[in-house]
């Protein structure tokens, strides 16, 4: 079980006298069960990436906490990281090495034995259809191949919680499907999957539960039917736009 409790994050937006504190995430709480795909929806600047970066231990919450079972992000950073696989579009791989080498390297850093790494690599390379390019330098790969490599690396240690920020951004339709199918299969294997997206079609297809984040605040949370029933709209996209463009401007 993953629990986010009262998570807030403030940033200083500039230096010197003009510096102002900006609250990127405001008192955010939600939780996810194993086998569930949770979609964090919101426009650009809503606080999705900040939330996920707090979940990944890359940045520290200003207040609140995140728990995976009995471990929390503030006190057990390293154990917490062993339980998550995190990927965001601004995380790049060293283009000088091959996917195969990087998988070995990250496997070792995740305290895995060579036999475990080999086994895990074989599975991920097949599942993500990577076998054709695992010995090519990452610099020579297409965007889709790089994304698949990044996905495989983030999951080399078979984490309990998968956190992907905009996992299909910039991908062609075929690679995008390969990644989303893979996430569905991971949830089917009992993993917790949290994704952020502003693509409602993908969100509706993938996610079991949703949180709509606007200006750092969680406006709605629940299953698709929960959200639609509590609104005057009949689909997720319209509910989403009703928060971004209040007053029915989007219709």
């Amino acid at each position: 079980m993953l629990r986010v409790e009262g998570l807030s994050k403030e940033f200083r937006n500039a230096r010197g006298r003009s510096a102002k504190m900006v609250q990127a995430v405001k008192n955010l709480s939600f939780q996810c069960k194993p086998g569930e795909i949770y979609g964090l929806l919101g426009p650009n600047g809503a606080g999705k990436t900040t939330t996920l970066r707090c979940l990944s231990t890359l940045i520290k919450p200003t207040s609140g906490n995140v728990f995976i079972d009995q471990y929390n992000v503030l006190e057990h950073g390293q154990i917490f990281r062993s339980k998550i696989g995190f990927l965001t579009s601004d995380m790049k791989l060293d283009g000088y090495f091959t996917p195969d080498y990087m998988m070995d390297w990250f496997g070792k850093l995740n305290k895995m034995q060579t036999s475990e790494i080999d086994e895990r690599k074989e599975k991920l390379f097949v599942d993500l259809k990577m076998t054709d390019f695992i010995h090519k330098k990452i610099d020579q790969l297409s965007t889709g191949m790089k994304q698949k490599t990044a996905v495989a690396i983030s999951l080399i240690h078979d984490p309990d919680v998968i956190i992907f920020d905009e996992p299909t951004n910039g991908l062609d339709i075929v690679t995008s499907k390969a990644v989303t199918d893979f996430l569905v299969s991971r949830a089917g294997a009992g993993k917790i999957v949290i994704i952020s997206t502003h693509n409602m079609t993908i969100a509706e297809k993938l996610c079991h539960r949703f949180g709509i984040l606007v200006e750092g605040e969680l406006k709605e949370e629940g299953t698709l039917s929960d959200i639609i029933e509590g609104s005057s709209w009949d689909n997720l996209e319209d509910v989403f736009f009703s928060y971004i463009l209040p007053g029915g401007d989007h219709v």
């Binding site: 990944s56 231990t57 890359l58 390293q78 154990i79 990281r81 062993s82 998550i84 995190f86 965001t88 601004d90 995380m91 790049k92 791989l93 060293d94 990250f106 850093l109 995740n110 305290k111 990044a150 690396i153 983030s154 240690h157």
Partner: peptide, 10 residues
């Protein structure tokens, strides 16, 4: 942008 992926590992 290659540092972050190292930082999220154990």
């Amino acid at each position: 942008g290659t540092l972050a992926i190292l930082l999220v590992n154990q």
